[in-house]
Write a protein that binds this DNA or RNA. Structure first.
Length: 579
RNA sequence: UGGGCCGUCGCCAAGCUGGUUAAGGCACUGGGUUUUGAUCCCAGCAUACCUAGGUUCGAAUCCUAGCGGCCCAGCCA
């Protein structure tokens, strides 16, 4: 039970329990083989991250017990009208970003077109498939409904010879799109609609991103997927719950093909788990496409989008996603994870790894009236409070400083313990100061705060600890601070379930998810940052002390012209309590 | 009288070949540390497992009947 500490850290779920048995019994020899099979018709989103860590994670973990284990990246490109190379490249990059090397393990369903075709002929020869010449409307009309059985096609009893001839001519390009399809001959009265003679092949005179114009006949998912799994020696084919109804079909194809000698047993087995649902976002491909194409966001990598590319630009980390997927687990129950769980995971990782820096997002000037105008007092700020090995850096304190507008209140509310007239506060890593006054413009807006500092209270000097003040605010010297573009992001949607019906809405009818977009999801402002931040590389992550985690924008940040995106704010129990 | 899946603490989630004090995490609450109202540390947090019956010495775990939720009628994946 307690073999090692490492065992205790491995995720526990029903899928791993199943695999444990197969692995121990060597059902599939010395391997556990999985695959991650996205269709290259869009960008990967947070839901895919769950699947990636599941599939690649299992292959990695089981190598200890079954050394030949692997996970394939398979591009499921069986529909030439929707798929593009651009997406393939993005998918590969995202998988790599999450930490998985797919070198030598990258496959395409389109690589198997010839083999798929061959197997289809075998199926026809064995009487398990036939060419149907009804049009799409007729097919729909004869499929039946959820409660009524379908009816047999008039073409269902064509001879093997005729089926084979037609199928070959379909491949040869003799027929236009839609003229015929190849169907599995199963049972038009099955309660499971997927078994009512499902389509196996359709004619599509279309250019495929990899096979070009070599084919005008393309296999359907249900057929291509299980065969692809078998060809790749997949042992456990993991997919989401909505495919559970397809499992009988998955097994039907493979069983028959195995009987015909095309595959050897044991055959791959499909296991379903529930997909990720997150509050305040949409994870449907259709809706993401709409948000991008209609300009509600700035592109597929907009930091507000739940795409992996967006997350990366937002400053989210692969380790954060790993923590998240471990934390939410794998099961078959419909779950709805609060977005804050993901944010907390990012905070947890960033807290450990991100160096601290100082930035003032909404600056007002603070003048230390008893501080000499020509003096520069060196102060030392540690780069990480828990990791002294990361060193410290010098920041100079001068007479004129920038402080956060929020850190001063002319008339403090109850519980406010930062700067306020007559009160003391510590300038972080500097001195204790006392507020002596402030000046406001004609509109009553504070434009400057005055204070005096106590030279005997410098941080790090003997005795400085003895004087306790509750407030502790960050600051930047006016002389040294560099202006920076700061992009503050909030949730893209204002409600937990975008597009969902709410109380008072007409029944049985969803609202337009676009109406739930949060108009305040992005604020761009100019703040001040410490000089070092103007020199850092794009994608550098750090914590702006007391504010949150930020990342130098991958596209727009330049040396001397800094641009930072807020990844996530720090937790704030002051704001939370309504202060 | 269609088929499939699910229902354990606010959110996740173990357990479900019957016998455990019903794991664990997150959130939350209280206390401690702290020059980030952050972090960190300690403590607390389901006599209860959708409901109602039944079997049993004993049921979250087995049986029956209900209730609730999700998915399926693409020549999409």
């Amino acid at each position: 039970m307690t073999d090692s500490a490492a065992d205790a850290l491995l995720p526990v779920n029903f899928i791993r329990a199943r695999i444990d048995e197969d692995c121990a019994a060597h059902t599939y020899g010395q391997k556990v083989a999985t695959r991650f099979p996205p269709e290259p018709n869009g960008f990967l989103h947070f839901g895919h991250a769950k699947s990636i860590f599941l599939n690649f994670g299992i292959a990695a973990d089981y190598r200890a017990a079954c050394p030949e284990s692997y996970c394939n990246l398979r591009l499921d490109d069986t529909n030439p009208t929707k798929e593009e190379t651009e997406f393939v490249d993005a998918i590969r990059a995202d998988v790599a970003w999450l930490g998985f090397d797919t070198a030598g393990r990258e496959f395409y369903a389109s690589d198997y077109f010839e083999r798929l075709y061959h197997c289809a002929e075998r199926l026809i020869e064995a009487g398990f498939a036939y060419v149907d010449s009804q049009d799409a409307d007729a097919l729909r009309a004869t499929r039946g409904t959820l409660t009524e059985p379908g009816t047999d096609s008039p073409f269902r009893s064509r001879s093997v010879a005729e089926n084979l001839d037609l199928f070959r001519r379909m491949r040869a390009g003799e027929f236009p799109d839609g003229a015929h399809i190849l169907r599995a001959k199963i049972d038009m009265s099955a309660g499971n609609i997927n078994l009512r003679d499902p389509a196996i092949y359709r004619i599509r005179h279309a250019h495929h991103h990899r096979t070009g114009d070599a084919w005008c006949l393309y296999p359907m998912y249900d057929y291509a997927h299980c065969v692809s799994d078998a060809l790749e020696g997949i042992s456990h084919s993991l997919c989401t719950l909505e495919f559970a109804d397809h499992r009988p079909l998955y097994d039907w194809f493979l069983d028959r093909l195995a009987d015909l000698g095309e595959f050897t047993r044991p055959l791959p087995q499909q296991i379903e788990f529930s997909r990720l649902n997150l509050t305040y976002v949409v994870l449907s491909k259709r809706k993401l496409i709409q948000l991008v194409s209609e300009g509600y966001v700035d592109g597929w990598d907009d930091p507000r989008l739940p795409t992996l590319q967006g997350a990366r630009r937002r400053g989210y980390t692969p380790a954060g996603f790993k923590l998240f997927t471990d934390r939410i687990g794998i099961s078959k129950s419909d779950s709805l994870i609060d977005f804050s769980v993901l944010e907390d995971c990012m905070r947890e990782v960033l807290n450990e790894t991100a160096e601290r820096r100082v930035a003032v997002l909404d600056p007002i000037k603070l003048v230390l009236t008893n501080f000499p105008a020509d003096q520069r007092e060196p102060c030392f700020a540690p780069n990480h409070p828990h990791h002294s090995e990361l060193g410290k850096r010098e920041i100079a304190l001068t007479r004129e400083l920038w402080i956060e507008r929020d850190d001063f209140m002319a008339e403090p509310v109850k519980g406010f313990f930062r700067l306020t007239p007559g009160k003391e506060v510590r300038l972080r890593y500097g001195f204790i100061i006392q507020c002596t006054g402030f000046t406001a413009d004609a509109n009553g807006r504070v434009i400057e705060v005055q204070a005096t500092y106590d030279p005997d209270t410098k941080s790090g000097t003997p005795g400085s600890e003895s004087r306790k003040v509750k407030g502790n605010i960050h600051w930047l010297s006016v002389a040294d601070a560099v202006p920076a573009e700061i992009r503050l992001y909030d949730r893209l949607f204002a409600v937990p379930a975008p597009g969902a019906r709410r109380e008072g809405d007409a029944p049985e009818r969803d609202r337009d998810f676009l109406a739930d977009i949060n108009p305040e999801s992005r604020h761009i402002q100019t703040g001040m940052v410490e000089p070092a931040l103007a020199q850092c590389a794009p994608e550098t992550r750090c914590q702006f002390e007391r504010l949150g985690y930020f990342v130098a924008d991958a596209r727009d940040h330049q040396t001397g012209k800094p641009v930072f995106n807020r990844t996530v704010s720090l937790r704030d129990s002051w704001q939370k309590t309504g202060g």
